[in-house]
């Protein structure tokens, strides 16, 4: 890889670049800092005209109020159920499809791949009306199964695509060598290829987790019963209703709680995501 900045850079350009770099850092971090710092302040120190920039004497009262409330815990249960089911089903189905696409040449293979790429362009907003009517007809509105169904469909194309890349990365020769040694094809696959795919499965699973955990639009459409809301829908409702302007501390604490798992997982899969998003788009 070429090392950037090896060529001599003029002083004004160098100064501008570094000033912009620091500005970018500030603009990116400030909202996150504000969310976390306000979540540790009592409301009487948030609801004031002169804001404290540094959160001295923090408190965990806000977190206590959120975690004790029924709303957050209900939504957490729903979110976890939907997210984990989505990841499990999507990984299984995508894994099988990825193996087929990567290891076999069969009729309809090319059109299957094309369909996956095209599906990724369908905006959820262009289809949620009929998905709503479909789930209504199947009595799956306000059901974790109904939401899981539409979630799996939306993460499946990307998941198949990413996993296919990982399966491609494991050379056929390894499997063939094991088969020479007397393994059946199935056994060779499970003992040789599958362990090598573990990192890929983890990364893809984490990506699906982030997608399903963050998703708002379909959850809003499918989960109309307040008792069945997922965390994002609950949070928006919480921030707009009785607590608006009253309990910003609790709102910031809930936002922080929802953000933490995403940031942790995101840092793990980030490198692969840059590659995956563009590779999925460039490669035929």
């Amino acid at each position: 890889m070429a090392t950037p900045g090896r060529r001599r850079t003029s002083t004004p350009l160098w100064l501008t670049a570094n000033a912009v770099g620091l500005a970018v850092l500030l603009v990116c971090i400030f909202p996150v800092y504000w969310m976390i710092s306000r979540s540790t302040l009592p409301n009487n120190r948030i609801r004031t005209k002169d804001q404290t920039w540094l959160p001295l004497n923090p408190t965990n009262d806000n977190y206590g109020r959120v975690l004790d409330g029924d709303g957050f815990r209900n939504a957490l249960t729903t979110s976890l159920a939907v997210t984990l089911m989505t990841v499990a089903v999507a990984l299984l189905f995508a894994f099988l499809a990825a193996v087929a696409v990567s290891r076999f040449r069969f009729r309809g293979r090319a059109s299957f791949i094309m369909t996956l790429l095209l599906i990724q362009m369908i905006p959820a907003e262009g289809l949620f009306i009929s998905q709503y009517k479909m789930l209504e007809g199947m009595s799956l509105l306000n059901s974790v199964f109904g939401l899981t169904l539409v979630y799996v469909a939306s993460v499946l194309p990307f998941t198949v695509w990413t996993l296919r890349g990982f399966v491609d990365g494991v050379p056929m020769e390894l499997e063939e060598a094991a088969m020479m040694d007397g393994c059946s094809r199935l056994r060779a696959f499970f003992t040789v290829t599958l362990p090598l795919l573990a990192p890929g499965l983890v990364a893809t699973g984490l990506f699906g987790f982030i997608q399903a955990w963050n998703e708002f639009t379909l959850a809003l459409v499918v989960m109309t019963d307040p008792a069945k809301e997922t965390l994002p829908v609950w949070l928006i409702g919480f921030s707009e209703s009785r607590s608006r302007g009253v309990d910003w501390g609790a709102i910031m604490a809930s936002s922080t709680l929802i953000t933490i798992p995403v940031i942790v997982f995101f840092l793990i899969v980030q490198r692969r995501m840059v590659a995956g998003l563009t590779a999925g788009a460039v490669k035929g």
Binding site: M35, N214, F216, L235, M252, T259
Partner: peptide
């Protein structure tokens, strides 16, 4: 910084 902004769930970002 950019990574942090990117990782932020859309709903949390909207609220902040």
């Amino acid at each position: 910084g950019l990574l942090l902004a990117w990782a932020m769930p859309v709903v949390a970002a909207m609220i902040v």
